[in-house]
Each structure stands twice: as structure tokens, then as C-alpha cells.
Design a protein around this nucleic acid. Structure first.
Lengths: 87, 87, 87, 87
DNA sequence: ACGTTTGCGCTTTAGC
DNA sequence: GCTAAAGCGCAAACGT
């Protein structure tokens, strides 16, 4: 009984926290829409802008992937740049 | 030329602002995932939690729709409830 | 060769069946538009009608979700209500 | 009062008819999904199939557009092939 | 690790 | 012509 109440309370806290974060996410999505609207009103092409954002995101991901790969090689070869595991 | 530079600068600002907001959005999405992971580790059923969140969201949306519908009816019948535009 | 022909024939049948169904779907969509037009000509507010339809659909979906949630709870608690798999 | 009841009844009929048609539309959409599933199980690539359907639809629309244009020209030039408006 | 299933974002379309 | 909504395709998440 007490355990159940505690569990219910804990679950409620999780749900509330999630809903709070979901709202934050929606707010930011709305802000993004706003920026696109502003740009559109200034005469910019929204579709093109979205393509640019997408391309830059892909570039960045690719770049990060490259760095991760490079890091993996370094570790495999003992060329550790990290200071995480001083021995 | 000067005009173009200004346009380029302005566009760059828009793109940067959007990318900043997109990052914020990703951060929050990651936080949400984290909360679900925590809950899962505590023994809660993630699927059930997601259904609860979804259902509560639907309740809220439906409530808002009900109000919108009521408002639309009022307007359609000339029963303008608003006092916003007394002149 | 013979095999390929059979495959081509089979694929063609799938495509034809899909296109037939897509046409049916379009026809029905056109009929729905017609009903709204008729109603509009009779003086009804289409926007209100669409909101009503939407709302009733949401009600139904929510009811189904509620049942799914209940079922999920039952399963999570080992209270399998189904008698489908007696062996 | 009587008028309102008649109006309500009429509106209800419209709503019911729309909901009936919407259900039909959903049924057909489900059938289409089924066909794609079947094809998938037979080893066909659904994504490619969808592209084919889309292309054929575009072809057809283009063809119809061409015919409409041709018809417009004919009418403009008095080369009326239609027997719709014998005077 | 794969395949399925669900949620999300985009695109296209209908209405004002 | 623009805005809002529905339909579609994609991608991540989940279970097997």
C-alpha cells in the first residue's frame, strides 16, 4: 500500500517531468517556425533555407563521424590523445 | 554589393539562430529519452508511460478543440463573447 | 526468362490493383467534398462541420486508446484477459 | 423550433454520411497497405513500387492535361468534337 | 543484428 | 497567395 503510493508518486513525477520537457520542446519548435516566418516576410525562400540547414547538419554529422573514426584508429594504435586514463 | 552583403549577413543570422534552436530541441529530446531510461531502470513500463503521456495530451487537445468549436458556434450565431473590440 | 515473365506479370497485377484502389480512394474523397459543398449550399458552416467530424473521430480514437492502455496494464501485471491461446 | 429540429436532423444526416465515407476511405487505405504487404512478403521492394505508382500517376495527369489543352485549343478554333451542346 | 512498428517532419493539397 | 491541415515518407526506437 505504502509502496504503491510511493510508486504512484514517483511515476507521477516522471510523467510530469516528461510533460514539462515536451512543452519546452514544443515551445522551441514554435520559435523555429517563427524564425522561418520572419525570414519569409523578409523575402527569403523557406524551402531553400530548410535545405541549407539539412545539408549543414549532414556535413556536421559526417565531420563528427570522421572524428570518431579517427579517434578509434588512434586508440587502436595507442596514439591516445585523451587524458582520461593516466596510468 | 553592399546590399548583397547585408542580405548574406542577415541570412546567416537566420540560419545560425535556427541551428541554435535545433540544437536546443535535440537536447530536450535527449533529456526526455533520459527520463524514460531512468524510469525503465526503476522498473516502470516505458510503453505504458508513453501511452499515458499521449492520452493526457489528447485530452488537452480535445478540450482546446471543444473550446474552439464553441467559439466558432458563437461567432456563427453572432453571439460574440469577446469584449475586446468596444469602440 | 519464364520466371522473370511470371514476376513481371505478378508485379503488374500488384500495381494495377493498387492503382484501382487509389482511384476508389480518390472517388470517395470527391464524394466527401461533394457532401460538404451540398451542406454549404444549404447554408451550413463547413468549418463547424469539419470540427464536429474531427472531434467525434478524436473521441473514438481516445476510447480505443483507453482500451489499449487498460490492456497494456493488464499484460504488464500478468492479468491476461485473453483466452485466445489455451493450448 | 420545428425548423431547428429539421436543421439538426439534416445536419446529422450530413455528418453521418461524411463519417460513412471517411470510413470507406480508411478501409481502402488499409487495403492498399495490405497489397503492399503482400508484395513485400513475395520479395518485392515496396519503396520502388510506390515510386512506380507515383510516376505512372504523374504520367497520367500529364496526359490528361495535354488532352485538356488540346480540347481547349479545339474549342477556341471551333473544332468542337463534343456533342454536348447541340443548339 | 534485423525487422517491425511507431512517432516525427515534410510535402502537398484544400480553403479563405 | 497565404495559411492551415491532411497524407506521405523517413528514421529512430523497440522487441525478437
Amino acid at each position: 500500500m505504502a509502496v504503491d503510493n510511493i510508486a504512484i508518486e514517483e511515476l507521477t513525477m516522471y510523467i510530469n517531468r516528461i510533460e514539462r520537457l515536451e512543452n519546452d520542446k514544443s515551445d522551441i519548435a514554435a520559435q523555429i517556425s517563427e524564425v522561418y516566418s520572419d525570414a519569409k516576410n523578409k523575402g527569403y525562400d523557406v524551402k531553400v533555407m530548410k535545405q541549407i540547414v539539412k545539408l549543414r547538419k549532414m556535413d556536421e554529422e559526417e565531420r563528427e563521424e570522421q572524428e570518431m573514426l579517427l579517434d578509434t584508429y588512434k586508440r587502436a594504435l595507442g596514439m591516445v590523445g585523451s587524458i582520461d586514463h593516466i596510468e
